[in-house]
Structures are given as C-alpha cells and as structure tokens.
Design a protein around this nucleic acid. Structure first.
Length: 800
RNA sequence: GCUCGGAUGGCGAAAUGGCAGACGCGCUAGCCUUAGGAGCUAGUACCUUCGGGUGUGAGAGUUCAAGUCUCUCUCCGAGCACCA
C-alpha cells in the first residue's frame, strides 16, 4: 500500500492548478452567480509569513473553494498594501531603500502564499506603491477634493516624535502611537483632512450588512452621534456677550449652577475679568503641559479656575460662576452647563470647587426630590419627570426637551443640534513612502489640483528617506518646482504624502479591473462584482480601515462611480492564534514558524490544524503536538481511500457526515467539519467504503484539504479537478434510521434507554419505556405527566 | 467608569431546551514492530457501600427537562475612555 507523500503531491497539484487557471475568475462575463471572496491584503513586511497570515489565508481559501463548489464564480484576489509605515520602517531598519525592500519582500511573499496552495489570484499584481495604482489613489483624492471633501486646515493634531509625522485620531491609542508605541504630542499644524464627518449619518446606516454586531457597535460608538441643544447664556459682567454651551439634557437646566469652559476655547478670554486674567492664563498653560505629558494617565481629579464672570441661566435668570476647567473638551461648543445633581463629573467638579451641591433635582420618579444631594446618585442620570422646574414641572423629560427647544428657538437663544465624536480624517503624512498628494501651490492661483491628465504625480526617488519632521519629498527640487497648471507661473508641489489607509480604502474597487490604464475602474466591471460578498480580516480594523473604506466607497457611490452603497456585504473577523495563551511576539520568543511544520506535514495538515483548533472567529492556542492528530487523520483518510469495501450500512454515516459538515462549513466552524470527517474515517476503517461513498466524502474534504482531495479524486479515476464538482447534498433517504435510541427520564432523571423505530407512536413508545426493567423500578407512584419527543426523549413525571 | 464577549475533563474543544464531554491532544494497559510524524486494540470527569449518587465559574429562578432561557454576583478577555 502506498503512503501519502504530502510534499510531492502538494507541489504537483499547485503546479496543475496554476496551469489550469483554477485561481482565475471570469471577470468579464461570469456565467455563474458571482462571489467576491476577499481577505484584507497584507503589507510586505520582510518577515516570513507568520501564523496570523496562515490563519487568515487558509480558512479564507477553504471558504472560497466551498463557495466555488456551491456553484459560484469565485473571485479571490490578493495584492499588497505596499506603501506606508511598515514598509518604510522596515527599510529604515535594514538600510535598504524601500523601493527595493518592497520589491524583494513582495516576491518572497508571493512564493510563500503560493505554497499555501490557495486559489488566490496574485497575477493581478495589485501593489499600492506602484505608479499604475497610486495614480488612481491620487484620482480618488481629487474626486474628494473637487467635492470639498478634501481640505487643508490648521488644527491641533497628533504628532509622533518617533515616526516624525502626524497621525490620525484612529492611529492613537491611549496617547500612544499605534505603530511605534511612542507618546504622541499635540501640535498646531496645517494639514490635509478628509471630511468624513460629512458622512457621519450615512456611516451610521448598516442596513443590509451582515456584520458582527460588536464591530457595528464599535463603529457606532466611534462615530458617537448625540442629540442635544446648544444654548447661549448671557454674561452678567459683559453686556451683549454670551457663552454658548452644548448639552444633551437641557431639561436639567433648573439644576444648573455653574458654567465650565475648555482651556482651548477660542473665546475664553471674553469671559475673564482683569483680576482673574493671570490665574486663568496660568491654568491654561498648565493644562497644555498636562496635555502633552499625562493627560491620559491617572488622575481624574477635576481642576479649574474661576474666570471672575457670571453667566445668566436663560430659564431662571439667576447668575452662576463661569470656570475654565480641563475636564471640558473642545467637543460640542467647548463649554457646558454644570448640573451637579445630574452628571457625575459636574458633581465632582462642584465638590472640589466648594460649590453648593444643589438643591433641585430636576427629574425623579415623579416625587418631589431631596433638597440636597450629598452623594452622587446614578439614578438621577435617567429620564424621568421634572420637579422644581417652573412651568416645566411634572412634565416628562421627552416632553420638556421638546417644549424647551421650542422656547429657545422662538426666543432666539438656542437650538437643537446633533454632535458627533467622529473627527475629520487627517490624511497627510510627513513621510517618504506614500502616495504624493496631487496638489500644486501657486503664488498667484493658490491651491491648484493637478489635472487628471497629469496623473500620476510620480513619487520621486530619494536617497535620504529617514524622517526628519518634514516630508523627504521636499528635498527633491525637480519634484517640488513645477509650473502652475492654471497660469503657467512658478509654483510648488505639495510635498506631504497620503496615509496608507487612503491607499487601502479603495483597493477592492480596483481588483475587478486591475491593470486598467485608462481609468480607476470600469463601471460595468465594478458593478458586476461589487459589493464584496465576504470580507475577512482582523477585528483591529473596526474603526480604521473598515470605517475609511466605507466612507470612500460611499463617496464613490454618491458620485455615481459604483452602484453598491456599501463595499462589504458580509464581514467576518478571524480570531488570534496564541502560544501558551500569550500573543506571539519576537520579544517574548514564542513565535511559531509555519514553514517548519509545513515542510514536515504539508500545507493541508497545517491549514487543517489551524482550523481544527477551534472556531475560526475565536482563534486558538498553538500546540506543537496537537498537529499530530490532524497528520494522523490525513494518513488514515488516505488509507481509507485505498481500501475497497462494499459500503454496506455506511450510506447513513456518509450522508450524516455530509449534513454535519455542510452545516459546520457554512457557519465557519471548520473544527466541527473536520471532526465529523474524522468520525467518519474511524467508522469507515472498520467497514470500508464503496466508490460512490468515497467520492462524496472526498468532495466534503476538498475545501479543507484541497491537495489531498485532488489526489484522491484522481486516484478514483477522475481526470478533471474536483473543484469542478458540486458540493454534495445529504440525501434524506439515507438519513432515515431504522432504529433510534430514546432516552427515558423519570422526573427529569435518566433511567434508561430504549431502541425504537424513529416513527414509533407515542403509545408504543411509552409502553416500551414502561416495560424496560430499570425504568419500571422508578415508576412507583402515580404518573401525572407523560412526555414524548419523537426521536429523543420519553419522560414520566411521578408523584409521591 | 462605560460597552461588548467569555468561563464545560490534565489540555484544545463538541452539544436546534432533550443521554454533557463528539472529535483531537495527552495519559494507562496490551498487541505488533523495535531508526524516523509509527500502527492497531481497549480504557481515560468525580465519588461510590457497585444499587447508585454528583458534576458545565458561584448563587437563585423558569421548566417534566437548563451548559443552553431569566435575574444577582465573581473572575478573565477585548474595545472605548472626562464626548456633557
């Protein structure tokens, strides 16, 4: 008997698949229903493919092959996110120019990805750092620019002193640079932004998307929509001047007893008396320093300084002090009304400032509230019925808010507004390895867009690309100095590059028409293939790539460039593979190298073990020994296929396996699918399968272990690829059993089992159960209830 | 602090409210081989007076029946973090 030689067999089939074009979809004219199966493209990092790559690409390929066998024209492309910090930092580390490292790394990765044996289309050669791609990234930029959705402004931005560039809010976690873990500082700089806030409401619409609930929640929270009111409070000491506050709970206005303003508030000095000026200025300086050093860390103590002036409560006319306080952010209007009874932070602030902690509880369960609040009460946060609120007393919060809004609008001192936490997307970077921003600055004409016909703005070669705080492109005179496209006079190019997330926010639109030199994509082509039917990638992109991509896609949709509203119809996040429960990292020295195991056991075994560890979305913990179980299974499976049997009494098991495996693959619990095949193999090694049964089983195995399945399929006498076959259906007639084991319970406890026909009547079943010796023993008292669940349970409830 | 997840043998894990622990790792015994990822057979939650009893983080509840549904709590993980 032959034993299975994985390395040889896998090489053979990878070659054959390549020759037959298994990885190619008919993009122009799909005859079957299309299925766009996409994995987030990798950046070429220079290290070998790690377990994380495999954990993604293996199962994604399994899914694609399954969909292919389900009768779809599967498009499964892969390219490289080759512009950006990872590639550039790798180049800086090695001292080799990024253009060179990117090239060699991509070539190396392509080889390694090929060794997985997936049907990924790498021939499209999509690389974001190539001029034929970034030409269209620049075009996308200009599409936004022409709509006023790309603009430049000076603003306080996040600056990473190590990466020597600005960063988007999304790339800063806990005040730390997401890439290099350095403390980020705030700087006022003139930078390029995409106006993603204009799409905030549209981005909150997830209709028709099959996405993980958690991801949607995270995005919703990041976008942070909140409805409320803005209202002007007059300043007692300065006639005609007002301070505008934002609140979501204007109904609590009768409990307001101070106003607090952010230190960064542009009109802060309008609210400061001469006497308090130096104190306020000092506070502002101190809080700026705090901003830079430890704003995020630790102390939640509320601080602030009295400005000397007072605001007038627009409802009651009473005066209250105005403070500058750094717990107030430049969110909303940068000023808030302090209502200690209803907001925990206001309560704390009032306490530290020695303010009276009042007095009126605006809402309660309808009863008159206590006069004084000594302790913070969470319940006062909620909507309720107003008390001590003048004409609004006894109203429900919703009603009071409505009437108060009407009043302020009528009297002209306030209105209803919607605020978002989402900030505009900062896209310019002072780094070398990115797409140049296609803008020219002319002394006469100002900011001028590079005409589409002049694209691409070629990324120049620079020898000294090490970041210094300004873009390295600025050092290339022939790049910088240009003629103005409008007036022909001397002008200078924009030297900043675009954030790599811009490159990756539209690549899925390029794949179906990659290589098109006339346009970013043909509309018909993209409308045939978009939206992406299945998008698989890590959950860490929830509020970055996945949000940006939706935004850009929605803009393209609104401009009529693509029919689909949303880019990704279904989204799945793969889990993480750990080692001994810890995240794998070089510094911990617990990195598992796939290559070693792949060369030992083969790609099929490696991929299957990753899938066998647990549910795909959960990830799993790597165990060097665990893989042997899957290796043994492959041997056993191959052996089972070599043995000829009559297949007697095996039809039920085979079709049972088809049913279970189909269900499992469909729900991406590949571990269960593999387990069901193992069970079948264990059973079949005793009985033996006939040829028809072997064929069915091999088809089930095919997406999970493509090389092995293809080999076995050929040995069964087929000359065409198994991936031209359809996924098998479990036939009902084989699933019908002649006898089923019923569990018999008395008072909920298992007392025995009886084997009966599956369609046995209730009466016969109960009689059979009663007759069972062990059961009869427990049927001593009066039977008050009889339970019969066909095929499963016979139960008695006995009294006494 | 807020918002989500999660907790089942020594380990990874299964289980439309219906016989908990499928499948695999590891372990034990035996067989066959003794160079390799060996192979095959049987066993493997706990207690037991061998009748049975107890077991899915803890405690309550619903139900004939709960790992699964409801409430309270503990612990672990992830995300957000002064957003008024």
């Amino acid at each position: 008997m032959q034993s299975y030689n994985a390395p040889e067999v896998e090489k053979k089939w990878q070659q054959k698949w390549k020759e037959s074009g298994l990885h190619k979809a008919n993009l122009e004219n799909p005859e079957k229903p299309k299925y766009y199966n996409l994995t987030m493209f990798p950046y070429p990092s220079g290290d070998k493919l790690h377990i994380g790559h495999w954990y993604n690409y293996g199962p994604v390929d399994t899914w694609g092959r399954y969909m292919k066998m389900k009768g779809f024209e599967v498009f499964q492309p892969m390219g490289f996110d080759s512009f950006g910090l990872p590639a550039e930092n790798y180049a800086i580390k090695t001292g080799v120019h990024p253009a060179e490292t990117t090239r060699t790394n991509i070539d190396k990765m392509k080889e390694q990805i090929a060794a997985i044996g997936g049907m990924y289309d790498l021939d499209l050669n999509l690389e974001t750092s190539s001029p034929e791609y970034y030409k269209w990234t620049q075009w996308v930029f200009l599409q936004l620019y022409k709509q006023g959705l790309a603009y430049r402004k000076e603003a306080p931005v996040n600056w990473c002193p190590s990466c020597m560039t600005v960063l988007a809010n999304e790339q800063v976690n806990d005040g730390i640079c997401e890439r290099c873990k350095t403390q980020v500082v705030q700087k006022n700089l003139r930078q390029w932004f995409f106006k993603i806030t204009a799409y905030a409401d549209k981005l909150l619409d997830y209709t028709g998307l099959d996405w993980p609930e958690k991801t949607i929640l995270m995005q919703k929270h990041w976008i942070g929509r909140s409805e409320g009111n803005e209202a002007d409070f007059r300043i007692a000491e300065a006639a005609g001047k007002t301070v505008r506050i934002f609140t979501t709970r204007f109904d609590t206005i009768y409990g307001t007893n101070f106003v607090a303003v952010a230190p960064e508030h542009p009109n802060l000095m309008d609210y400061v008396t001469e006497g308090q000026r130096s104190a306020v200025e000092k506070y502002v300086q101190d809080s700026k320093k705090k901003n830079e050093l430890e704003r995020q860390m630790g102390d939640r103590e509320k601080t602030g300084v009295f400005t000397g002036m007072h605001a007038i409560n627009p409802m009651t006319g009473s005066e209250m002090p105005i403070y500058v306080a750094d717990f107030v952010l430049m969110y909303g209007t940068g000023a808030l009304m302090g209502t200690p009874a209803h907001d925990a932070r206001d309560f704390l602030f009032a306490k530290t400032m020695g303010l009276e902690c009042p007095q009126v509880l605006v809402t309660a369960a309808g009863e008159v509230a206590e006069d004084n609040v000594k302790e913070w009460k969470e319940s006062l946060h909620e909507y309720g019925i107003l008390v001590n609120s003048g004409p609004y007393t006894d109203m429900r919060t919703e009603e009071a808010l409505k009437l108060m809004t009407e009043q302020m609008e009528r009297e002209g001192w306030g209105k209803q507004v919607v605020n978002f936490r989402l900030r505009d997307w900062l896209i310019s970077r002072q780094r070398y390895w990115g797409a140049p921003i296609p803008i020219i600055n002319c002394e006469k004409c100002g900011e001028v867009a590079v005409p589409d016909s002049d694209l691409p703005v070629v990324h120049p070669h620079v020898e000294d690309y090490v970041p210094k705080g300004t873009s390295p492109l600025a050092t290339v005179e022939e790049f910088v100095n240009v003629k103005c496209p409008t007036c022909g006079g001397d002008a200078k190019r924009e030297v900043d590059t675009m954030d790599t997330f811009v490159c990756s926010s539209w690549y899925f639109l390029r794949y179906p028409d990659a290589g098109n030199s006339e346009q970013a994509w043909r509309k018909e082509r993209v409308n045939t293939w978009m939206p992406v039917d299945m998008y698989i990638g890590g959950p860490e992109h929830a509020c970055m790539h996945l949000l940006y991509a939706r935004f850009i896609h929605q803009v393209m949709h609104d401009l009529g460039h693509v029919e689909a509203k949303e880019p990704f119809k279904r989204l799945v996040h793969q889990g993480m593979v750990t080692k001994d429960g810890a995240k794998m990292s070089k510094s911990k020295g617990n990195v598992v190298s796939p290559d070693e195991f792949v060369s030992k056991y083969g790609s099929d075994v490696f991929r299957m073990y990753l899938m066998f560890m647990g549910p795909f979305t959960d990830g799993g913990d790597w165990n060097d020994r665990g893989i042997t179980g899957v290796a043994r299974f492959v041997d056993r499976f191959y052996r089972m296929m070599q043995e000829d049997g009559t297949g007697e009494a095996m039809d039920g098991v085979v079709h049972q396996t088809v049913a279970r495996a189909s269900e499992a693959v469909k729900s991406m619990t590949f571990n269960v699918a593999i387990a069901s095949l193992m069970e079948l193999t264990n059973a079949a090694l005793k009985g033996g399968l006939n040829k028809a049964q072997k064929e069915i089983v091999t088809k089930v195995l095919a997406p999970l272990a493509p090389h092995l399945a293809e080999e076995v399929w050929a040995e069964l006498g087929h000359s065409e690829s198994i991936f031209k076959e359809s996924w098998p259906e479990a036939e009902a007639k084989f699933l019908v059993k002649t006898s089923v084991t019923f569990a018999v319970q008395v008072n909920g406890k298992l007392r025995g089992t009886v084997d009966l026909a599956p369609d046995v009547s209730k009466e016969d079943a109960l009689a059979a159960a009663r007759a069972s010796e062990n059961v009869a023993k427990y049927l001593t008292g009066e039977v008050v209830k009889e339970i019969f669940v066909p095929g499963k349970i016979i139960g008695f409830v006995v009294k006494g």
